[in-house]
Amino acid sequence: QVALSRTQVCGILREELFQGDAFHQSDTHIFIIMGASGDLAKKKIYPTIWWLFRDGLLPENTFIVGYARSRLTVADIRKQSEPFFKATPEEKLKLEDFFARNSYVAGQYDDAASYQRLNSHMNALHLGSQANRLFYLALPPTVYEAVTKNIHESCMSQIGWNRIIVEKPFGRDLQSSDRLSNHISSLFREDQIYRIDHYLGKEMVQNLMVLRFANRIFGPIWNRDNIACVILTFKEPFGTEGRGGYFDEFGIIRDVMQNHLLQMLCLVAMEKPASTNSDDVRDEKVKVLKCISEVQANNVVLGQYVGNPDGEGEATKGYLDDPTVPRGSTTATFAAVVLYVENERWDGVPFILRCGKALNERKAEVRLQFHDVAGDIFHQQCKRNELVIRVQPNEAVYTKMMTKKPGMFFNPEESELDLTYGNRYKNVKLPDAYERLILDVFCGSQMHFVRSDELREAWRIFTPLLHQIELEKPKPIPYIYGSRGPTEADELMKRVGFQYEGTYKWVNPHKL
């Protein structure tokens, strides 16, 4: 086992960053958080920038500027975001240094004079007029057009580079997404736009490419001749908990499936790229999406959770019991969808996408189930092999396979070949997804960000279904809070070829 401390991990990262040409360590950078008073800024962006600063992973002359409508001070920003920093008493001095680099400007999102004030403020910072500028839009999409237009007109660096990070949702359907994309691309070049999907920053999602293309053993079996089906799962054990009003506007397909799960599907299904260059990788992902037809209604199961009468606390409440959810809402909190990649490698292999709230566990994984062994000599005792990439929690890679049961006879039983990170790298604290992705933006690497043509294809696949749901308002199937979801989803999976045995229990190697 390799035991690495946080300091050692960050030392390795620093070495990698400083050796590259793309990370300008000594240049002045300004990180501007648009929507600095909001939840995302408070819980994710400010803490992430602090962790990067604490670990010495930001360029040395980096300033952080918050911008929002609320009249706040840096002290206010500190008060609301610091509880999420997880700072230790030993880091007190470092924390003071961090907040000394912070400033805040209040202004409207659609007022040109406010942006001119913001620009004057940035120019007044040390070497601010020639600094590289990175704008993070932690804002609702309704203000994107006004904000990007004003940034472009008043706040661009004339000497350094300018980059803009856009948070999902990128529209509600193909038409609104196209409108937003066309607007942003009329102001910024594609190499300046970073559409963030934080799932692409997760260690195991990034590991998929290495697993596939750096190991000879997987190449020959990664196709329709050997793989019976692919299941991509995202499960949350909690409901909307008072935030249903926002969720109800989008629903589970827009929230998770059309982005996170579809991105994971691309990494499983794509061909080997010409290189690890950002556009070479994204070219292959677009090719996969172009091979997927629009979702067919007979390959869809929609569910909505109801309270568990035997549960406790939140578990007793259904989705419609959330006071922020519109009365009688038919918005799905669970969806199972089957897609097919219609190309030579994957023809006929079902890709089953499942996601839901208020389920029995927290889990995100990719599961490849292989065909049955031909010419069975073990009297149907063999179960199908599976390769599982567990994204969260407890990152893991393992192969479910058959071995001989101890004893006199040739009785096979299920076991696993474990390729888990935790076994080799004991207690290594890896940077989280937002840390990686923000560092990628500083480096100018777009590999783990969504390109406009990729986004367009993703919406093309799901828009007809979303429009049909909005028009017909089908009643989702009720499922109990804390269950596996509607049984109809299991029946759909069985119908397209997935075999669920229920006889195997994964042993978490992190707890051995």
Rank of each mutant, 00 (worst) to 15 (best):
residue 254 R to C: 07
residue 254 R to I: 03
residue 255 D to V: 03
residue 256 V to M: 08
residue 257 M to E: 02
residue 258 Q to K: 00
residue 260 H to R: 04
residue 262 L to A: 11
residue 263 Q to D: 01
residue 265 L to Q: 00
residue 266 C to H: 03
residue 266 C to M: 07
residue 266 C to F: 06
residue 267 L to Q: 09
residue 269 A to Q: 00
residue 269 A to I: 06
residue 270 M to Q: 06
residue 271 E to D: 09
residue 272 K to R: 13
residue 272 K to S: 07
residue 275 S to I: 05
residue 275 S to C: 08
residue 275 S to W: 03
residue 276 T to G: 13
residue 276 T to D: 13
residue 277 N to Q: 14
residue 277 N to M: 10
residue 278 S to M: 03
residue 278 S to C: 10
residue 280 D to C: 13
residue 280 D to Q: 12
residue 282 R to H: 09
residue 285 K to S: 03
residue 286 V to E: 10
residue 286 V to F: 08
residue 286 V to P: 00
residue 286 V to H: 08
residue 287 K to A: 11
residue 287 K to H: 10
residue 289 L to C: 12
residue 289 L to A: 08
residue 291 C to L: 14
residue 292 I to Y: 06
residue 294 E to M: 10
residue 294 E to W: 09
residue 294 E to H: 09
residue 294 E to N: 13
residue 295 V to I: 14
residue 295 V to G: 13
residue 297 A to C: 14
residue 298 N to Y: 11
residue 298 N to M: 10
residue 299 N to W: 09
residue 300 V to K: 09
residue 300 V to R: 08
residue 301 V to Y: 02
residue 302 L to A: 08
residue 303 G to H: 03
residue 305 Y to A: 05
residue 306 V to T: 15
residue 308 N to I: 09
residue 309 P to N: 15
residue 310 D to H: 13
residue 310 D to L: 14
residue 311 G to Q: 13
residue 312 E to V: 13
residue 312 E to G: 10
residue 313 G to A: 14
residue 315 A to D: 13
residue 316 T to F: 13
residue 317 K to C: 13
residue 317 K to T: 15
residue 318 G to W: 01
residue 318 G to S: 11
residue 319 Y to K: 00
residue 319 Y to S: 00
residue 319 Y to P: 04
residue 320 L to N: 08
residue 321 D to E: 13
residue 322 D to K: 00
residue 322 D to W: 04
residue 323 P to S: 13
residue 324 T to Q: 13
residue 324 T to K: 09
residue 326 P to Q: 06
residue 328 G to N: 05
residue 329 S to Q: 06
residue 331 T to W: 03
residue 331 T to P: 04
residue 332 A to S: 12
residue 336 A to W: 00
residue 337 V to I: 14
residue 339 L to F: 09
residue 340 Y to N: 15
residue 340 Y to W: 11
residue 342 E to Q: 15
residue 342 E to C: 13
residue 343 N to P: 03
residue 343 N to H: 08
residue 344 E to F: 09
residue 344 E to S: 12
residue 345 R to A: 14
residue 346 W to A: 04
residue 348 G to Y: 00
residue 349 V to K: 00
residue 349 V to L: 02
residue 349 V to R: 01
residue 351 F to R: 02
residue 352 I to D: 02
residue 353 L to S: 02
residue 353 L to V: 08
residue 354 R to A: 01
residue 355 C to K: 03
residue 355 C to Y: 01
residue 356 G to P: 04
residue 357 K to V: 01
residue 358 A to I: 06
residue 360 N to E: 09
residue 360 N to F: 00
residue 361 E to A: 09
residue 364 A to C: 13
residue 365 E to Y: 05
residue 365 E to T: 08
residue 366 V to G: 00
residue 368 L to N: 05
residue 370 F to V: 05
residue 371 H to M: 09
residue 373 V to S: 08
residue 374 A to Q: 14
residue 374 A to M: 09
residue 376 D to I: 06
residue 378 F to R: 03
residue 378 F to D: 04
residue 379 H to I: 07
residue 380 Q to E: 15
residue 380 Q to W: 10
residue 380 Q to L: 07
residue 381 Q to P: 14
residue 381 Q to H: 12
residue 381 Q to M: 10
residue 382 C to A: 15
residue 384 R to V: 06
residue 385 N to M: 01
residue 386 E to N: 04
residue 386 E to V: 03
residue 389 I to R: 02
residue 390 R to Q: 13
residue 391 V to D: 04
residue 392 Q to P: 01
residue 394 N to V: 06
residue 394 N to M: 10
residue 395 E to M: 07
residue 396 A to E: 00
residue 396 A to I: 02
residue 396 A to Y: 05
residue 396 A to D: 04
residue 397 V to C: 09
residue 398 Y to K: 01
residue 400 K to Y: 05
residue 400 K to N: 03
residue 401 M to V: 14
residue 401 M to F: 12
residue 401 M to W: 11
residue 402 M to A: 11
residue 402 M to E: 10
residue 402 M to R: 00
residue 404 K to C: 01
residue 404 K to Y: 02
residue 406 P to K: 08
residue 411 N to L: 06
residue 411 N to A: 13
residue 412 P to L: 10
residue 412 P to E: 09
residue 414 E to W: 12
residue 414 E to N: 08
residue 415 S to V: 12
residue 417 L to P: 00
residue 418 D to M: 04
residue 418 D to G: 12
residue 420 T to L: 02
residue 421 Y to F: 09
residue 422 G to F: 11
residue 422 G to C: 13
residue 424 R to N: 05
residue 425 Y to N: 08
residue 427 N to A: 09
residue 427 N to T: 13
residue 428 V to T: 08
residue 430 L to Q: 09
residue 431 P to C: 09
residue 433 A to D: 02
residue 440 D to G: 06
residue 440 D to F: 02
residue 441 V to T: 13
residue 442 F to A: 12
residue 442 F to W: 09
residue 443 C to S: 10
residue 443 C to G: 13
residue 444 G to Q: 07
residue 444 G to D: 09
residue 445 S to P: 05
residue 446 Q to Y: 05
residue 447 M to C: 08
residue 448 H to P: 08
residue 455 L to F: 01
residue 455 L to K: 03
residue 460 R to T: 07
residue 463 T to M: 02
residue 464 P to M: 09
residue 465 L to V: 12
residue 467 H to E: 09
residue 470 E to K: 06
residue 473 K to I: 09
residue 473 K to D: 12
residue 475 K to E: 14
residue 476 P to V: 10
residue 477 I to D: 13
residue 478 P to E: 12
residue 478 P to F: 09
residue 478 P to K: 14
residue 480 I to T: 15
residue 480 I to A: 15
residue 486 P to R: 02
residue 486 P to T: 00
residue 490 D to I: 09
residue 490 D to L: 13
residue 491 E to A: 11
residue 492 L to Y: 08
residue 492 L to I: 15
residue 492 L to A: 06
residue 492 L to R: 01
residue 493 M to L: 13
residue 493 M to Q: 15
residue 493 M to G: 15
residue 493 M to D: 06
residue 495 R to V: 11
residue 496 V to N: 15
residue 496 V to K: 12
residue 497 G to V: 02
residue 498 F to W: 14
residue 500 Y to W: 11
residue 501 E to L: 06
residue 502 G to A: 12
residue 502 G to N: 15
residue 503 T to D: 15
residue 506 W to C: 03
residue 507 V to A: 15
